[in-house]
Simulated scan of single mutants.
Amino acid sequence: MTRRSTPTGADRGLAVLLMVCGALGLAASAVLTVDKIRLLQNPGYTPSCNINPVISCGSVMRTAQAEAFGFPNSLIGLAAFAVVLAVGVGLMAGAVYRRWFWVGLQLGTVLGLGFVLWLIDQALYEIGALCPYCMVVWAVVLPLCWYTTLHNHPRLRTRYHWVVPALWYVGIALLVLNRFWYYWRTLL
């Protein structure tokens, strides 16, 4: 006996979240890709997001971590965030996706979150520099994963659904503040 997937749509809030996060992630990935191409063409190129010794895209782009799979990580972002944006637009237009589709989106967001956690660790403790466009990706991946999880597991939904993303942002801010305190205190 085979089980058939039942179609599921999503509420307008999830559709908007997918569109906004997908668009932000896609824009950040596009800027990173263009800057990476320019850096490959001209090793002396200075990306516009090189602001100071801590906030320095160029420092991050020149590391092995920026090409974790042998090609620029931003190319993964271009593909992944384009899919997220398309799913959000589809939902907004009334699309209904089967259960297997939502499981696939869940798997993609979980893998994305795992990759982002590794990149955060690398940026803070190995590279010692921050890329603002990378941080945009950090900011959008958790809500994508969290709200996809809540969609797939409705029993987890509470009126305090915002607590997990809020703690994520506070936690990242504290890690960044702590790691680069030596620099931040010179600005006070």
Rank of each mutant, 00 (worst) to 15 (best):
G114D: 03
R179C: 01
C49T: 03
S74Y: 01
P72S: 05
G128M: 08
Y147W: 12
A129N: 13
A86F: 01
A27K: 04
V87I: 14
V20H: 04
A123D: 14
E126Q: 15
A129F: 13
L75H: 04
Y182N: 12
H153M: 11
W118V: 10
D11N: 14
M92W: 15
R12C: 11
G108I: 03
A15N: 08
A27R: 00
A82E: 07
A95Y: 08
G104I: 08
W181N: 07
L32I: 13
G171R: 03
A129S: 13
A68E: 05
T158F: 02
N42Y: 08
W181Y: 04
R179E: 09
V89D: 05
Y45D: 10
V136S: 06
R99S: 14
G25Q: 13
A166H: 03
L111P: 03
A66G: 04
I127L: 05
F180T: 01
L150A: 08
A139R: 08
G44D: 14
C131R: 06
G58R: 04
L75F: 13
Q65W: 09
T8A: 14
L91R: 08
F69Y: 06
A10D: 03
C134R: 14
T33H: 09
M135V: 15
I127M: 01
V137C: 14
L111S: 13
Y147V: 01
T63I: 11
L177C: 00
V140T: 11
D35N: 15
Y169G: 00
L113P: 02
G114C: 10
W168H: 04
L144T: 05
N52P: 12
G58W: 04
A123M: 13
E67Y: 04
G22L: 12
I127F: 05
Y169I: 01
L150F: 11
P47I: 07
S5Y: 14
V141E: 06
Y125C: 05
V87N: 00
K36R: 12
N178L: 14
V164G: 00
V140P: 04
Y160C: 10
W184D: 01
F115L: 10
V110F: 12
R157H: 10
A173L: 11
L174R: 08
N73Q: 03
I37G: 01
I37T: 06
V141R: 04
I120K: 06
N73P: 05
A28C: 05
G77H: 09
L40Q: 11
T6R: 14
A28D: 01
I51T: 09
A95K: 14
Y147I: 04
W162K: 02
V87G: 01
M135L: 15
L144Q: 09
A173P: 00
M1P: 06
I55R: 03
T46K: 15
L174H: 05
P53M: 08
V136Q: 05
L24H: 04
A93E: 11
Y160T: 12
T149M: 12
S48H: 09
L177G: 13
I172H: 03
P43W: 12
C145V: 09
Y45T: 11
M1S: 06
R98S: 14
L174V: 09
W118A: 13
E126C: 09
R3W: 03
L18W: 15
S29C: 08
S74E: 07
A27Q: 03
S48A: 15
V176D: 00
G90T: 02
V176Y: 00
I127Y: 02
V141A: 11
W138F: 15
Y45P: 11
